[in-house]
Amino acid sequence: MSRIAAEHDIHASYAAGKVKRKRNRFLSRWETPGLGYLFISPWLVGFLLLTLYPMLLSLYYSFTDYTLMKPIKWVGLRNYERIFTADDKFLQSVKVTFLYVLGSVPLKLIFALFIAVVLNKAVKGISAYRVAIYFPSLIGGSIAVSMLWRNIFGVDGFINSVLDKFGIEGSGWISNPKTALWSLILLSVWQFGSAMVIFLAGLKQIPKDLYEASSVDGANRFVQFFRITLPMLSPTLYFNLIMGIIGAFQMFTSAYVITNGGPMNSTLVYAVYLYERAFNRYQLGYASSLAWIMLVMIAIVAAAIALTSKYWVFYETDTGRGKRK
């Protein structure tokens, strides 16, 4: 049989659906199985090699005394034991991190929500205000702003020179352990613009007729805010809360550049402590244990919020608005 004839034969049986159905009953459910994997392969390889494998590797390291210099030795739970029983700096960094999260996230969200509600009412000039308020979020994460902050809150900095005019002698905000963390929290709150932009988008989604109907019923602004705006915005709030907490737990640049964890470890946030263990002392095994403890902490906090969410997050359903889910 010639090649062409053979090909014709195959085509004929394909057309009759014989070969394909027999050979490919599983795969034929998909139009392009191999091609799909080809397209997503960069991410898939990246996920397996740069996310999944490193995570398992890090879990393994956390049970070893790994440093880059000597061969790895398995030490079982000893790192964890030492962290929980004999590491004062760990306790300090957990305390500082929780203080930072509890101080910065709620303040930032309250500001963002309040200003978004005010801004949503103003029709004229909204984009100019939005630019001014969003700009700090744009640059706030950079090392440049951390340096600005170090200067503004320094002993001879801008804040003290203003206070001086009013006859108040300010302390070195950054060199004083009592106020250092607050200057970092303030830096984070200054960047409430991105959360505000997200709230603004959420506010635009709330149907106007809800407000009209409620004012016919005699509800004032205050009641409307708590009975309409807040419930309707709760999914956005939930999102901002979770992402804000995950981000705040990992804060690094400002604490490293402005205060380097000091003074007296008062700004030793978890990521800075982890960095110190891993890359100043090269205790990579110990630092991996720290990293996993942080992951578990974040997961617990996020899960706790997710569990409570059914009591305060409202989802619009097809059958009615603002029904509890």
Binding site: L50, P54, Y61, Y66, L274, A291, W292, M294
Partner: peptide, 9 residues
């Protein structure tokens, strides 16, 4: 942060 150390290694 969990990935920093193993990726560095």
């Amino acid at each position: 942060q969990v990935l920093i150390i193993p990726q560095y290694a």
